[in-house]
Design a binder for these strands. Structure first.
Lengths: 215, 215
DNA sequence: GAATTAATTGAACGTTTGTTTTATTAATCG
DNA sequence: CGATTAATAAAACAAACGTTCAATTAATTC
């Protein structure tokens, strides 16, 4: 047999991407074989090489596009000329919403860095650093204006990102908490962590609205 | 050739464990081959099977002992009849010190869970849950006595653990910050996060001592 | 110092791996 | 409808994998 009835390049490539994200998240890069991926798509292994020249290029493509999307999502959501607290809220909300919605791809992008060649690793890390820099900048501005009380902006940014990204480890859609509840709780934890409620006097009230939701 | 001069079982086994933790942390379970591990130890691959029956059993042994050690360290450090803030401080300090000191082993225990068989995975997760339960219990007590202001103890415990364990991702000994500085900063972030400084009136002062170390 | 035990080598086994090549069939275009 | 192009299958490749086995040598014991 050769070309199958109803076969279409774009559809197959989309199916490969989807199956790859799923299998990579579940088994990891080294444990996922090209034959396993092909079987999931319903195709022979050789067919994969029409869309991606190597296994590593497939991984890299998925990771790069995921980082592109993350940065694009933040650029669309960022409130440009707002006070630090508002900008921090937007960052937290975007980060958590994006990471919950795309848990599998995030898992891959965070866990499989060591499977990339040095040059490709550098590129992904560059994108990640650019994204994290946005948070550091917000924190720095907040410290300057007195909106936040933070000891070390670099360290705090790392702590916040680790904390927020951690949702993908335990969060399962449809269990106990909704995305909105999780986001609200993380938002208030973040604001307390950066010492925001001691300083702001007006709109930071909305943080406390959620504060006793489930005490 | 066969038995080499100066060979001794205990020494070899210790060398295997040490090299395995290092290689597993750097390359991951699937990417590390038994031949690569043997080469690192300076031995042939077949010699490894005198100490560990399979590759997976080697991984499991390292992970189980690491969890044992973590729980033992906490049992040695835990202040039993103290107020929640003191207990939380002890938990944070122990967690960060232990995880920085044993970054590689922690990395393995966190990243390679999916390479374990279901039964072995269950055992490691049981140990992990037992350890995390300690933190949830501290948070619950703190909420009850009014020492902490926390919306969801389970969610807060997960957030704190993700945040604290995250140090192993970026911390490198001998760079910029000392272990003591990192611990102090994480301690004050934790205390703010659980809303501790609004309630306690006496010994929570020592939190603020560190607070403006590097603002 | 001979007998026994502990530790290791070297070769081999059957699988599985990522990838390439060639042939074949379906879809598309003129 | 015939020619061309796109999409796939099937088979094969060498390399690497975890693991086993028999042979061999060092350390230990009596």
């Amino acid at each position: 047999m050769a070309r199958t009835t109803g076969s279409h390049g774009e559809k197959t490539e989309a199916a490969v991407r989807e199956a790859a994200v799923s299998l990579l998240a579940r088994y990891g890069y080294e444990a996922m074989s090209m034959r396993q991926l092909a079987a999931e798509v319903g195709v022979q292994a050789a067919a994969l090489y029409r869309y991606f020249p190597t296994k590593e290029e497939l991984l890299f493509t998925l990771m790069r596009e995921h980082m592109d999307d993350l940065i694009a999502a933040w650029n669309a959501a960022r409130p440009d000329d707002a006070d630090p607290a508002t900008r921090l809220s937007a960052y937290v909300e975007n980060h958590i919403a994006f990471h919950i919605e795309r848990r599998h791809a995030t898992h891959v992008s965070n866990m499989e860095l060591r499977s990339l060649s040095p040059e490709r690793l550098t590129q992904i890390l560059k994108q990640r650093t650019a994204y994290e820099k946005e948070l550091r900048s917000i924190l720095r501005d907040g410290v300057e204006t007195g909106a936040f009380r933070v000891e070390d902006t670099g360290l705090t940014a790392m702590a916040l990102i680790q904390m927020m990204t951690g949702v993908i480890v335990w969060f399962r859609p449809g269990e106990r908490l909704s995305i909105a509840e999780v986001t609200a709780t993380y938002l208030s934890m973040t604001m307390r962590l950066v010492g925001a409620n001691d300083v702001t006097t007006g709109e930071e009230r909305h943080v406390h609205e959620h504060a006793q939701l489930r005490a």
